[in-house]
């Protein structure tokens, strides 16, 4: 049953990924990517990582992809590739390079990963408990954890600053109009 679930989910993930880069419409791309993220979340669950499963859902699916959709809709940037390609020779070359990269990555994956099933047993049962992850976060990885906090803070400030300037410019252009209340999450 594990194999059935895996292949099903993997197929969905692959289909979502391919469809994402093929889709002409950016909203469709976002939806296919969402599908892919959902599939990967399920794979996390299969890998005994329920915490990451929920994180994947709430951060990637719930926040990041919503942001993407939001920006696409706000900008009306669903289809920007209608114009003629300025670098027509780039695409085939990119495909060749992609193929090369794929071959390298797969060789590495086959050589690096073990073909046996991962270990089971009592240790495997306890594995993936959010408590153990949390403990590691606050002991061994305390410093990186704090740094990610600072990164988030910096990101928040950066976004606010970027927005702020735009709002000011708008206000100057059309005096009297109230700058639209930010919809920045």
């Amino acid at each position: 049953m594990d194999f059935v679930l895996f292949f099903l989910t993997a197929a969905i993930a692959l289909a979502g990924a391919i469809a994402m880069i093929v889709a002409r419409n950016a909203v469709h791309s976002a939806l296919f990517l969402l599908l892919n993220f959902g599939a990967i979340a399920v794979l996390f669950l299969l890998l005994q990582s329920p915490f990451l499963f929920t994180i994947q859902l709430s951060i990637y699916a719930g926040a990041i992809m919503v942001l993407f959709l939001f920006v696409v809709m706000l900008l009306g940037a669903e289809q920007v590739e209608a114009a003629q390609d300025k670098l027509p020779w780039q695409q085939p070359l990119a495909l060749v390079m992609g193929a090369g990269l794929l071959v390298i990555a797969m060789i590495t994956a086959v050589r690096g990963g073990s073909n046996d099933a991962p270990p089971g047993g009592e240790a495997a049962e306890a594995f993936g408990d959010p408590a153990s992850l949390g403990e590691l976060l606050f002991t061994k990885y305390l410093l990186p954890f704090q740094i990610t906090g600072i990164i988030l803070l910096v990101a928040v400030i950066g976004v606010v600053v970027l927005n702020q300037q735009r709002n000011q410019a708008q206000t100057e252009e059309t005096p009297g109009e109230r700058p639209s209340s930010s919809v920045q999450p």
Partner: peptide, 28 residues
Amino acid sequence: VPTTFYVLLSAVLFTIGVLGVLIRRNAI
């Protein structure tokens, strides 16, 4: 499921991502 399967899937997905970066012109 053996780890190799997951890693292979990961490799394929990664390559698809690279191709997306290379080919698509829509910044988003």
